[in-house]
Design a protein around this nucleic acid. Structure first.
Length: 112
DNA sequence: ACTTTGACTATAA
DNA sequence: GTTATAGCCAAAG
């Protein structure tokens, strides 16, 4: 059906598949998409996530160490942290604790 | 078409 | 643990 649309939409789709209580990293998504090193593009796609009008759980996407790098893009407050904690993820000092435990690898648990 | 950017990652010191 | 630097790639200006 859909031929590959923009790189953005691929990211959106993967992020949308992230189950609650889990989180993944930009690099993991990038590698899953085959881009591998374009981890920055994943974040960039997220930046456009609000432009498409779709609900993207971008709060479940953090950097490789579990730090809420993009929390500033969610809102003036710590909305990202709030959302993660609401899903049972322990966040402290804008960083996910036990990130290894909540880490969700699309290439390992999600298979297309 | 060129330049700048950016919610990253890896390696080195 | 940190800071610094390089690589990386696609979209926006």
């Amino acid at each position: 059906m859909e031929a590959k649309e923009s790189f953005f939409e691929m990211v959106y789709e993967v992020v949308r598949q992230i189950p609650p209580g889990r989180a993944t990293s930009y690099g993991a998504i990038a590698r899953f998409l085959g881009t591998g090193k374009s981890s920055r593009m994943v974040g960039w796609a997220m930046n456009g996530s609000h432009t498409i009008g779709a609900k993207i759980p971008a709060h479940r996407v953090v950097n490789r160490i579990g730090v809420l790098t993009g929390k500033a893009h969610f809102g003036p407050g710590d909305e990202m942290k709030n959302l993660l904690e609401a899903e049972g993820i322990v966040v402290q000092n804008d960083q996910i604790q036990d990130f290894n435990r909540v880490f969700w690898d699309p290439a390992a648990e999600l298979r297309l």
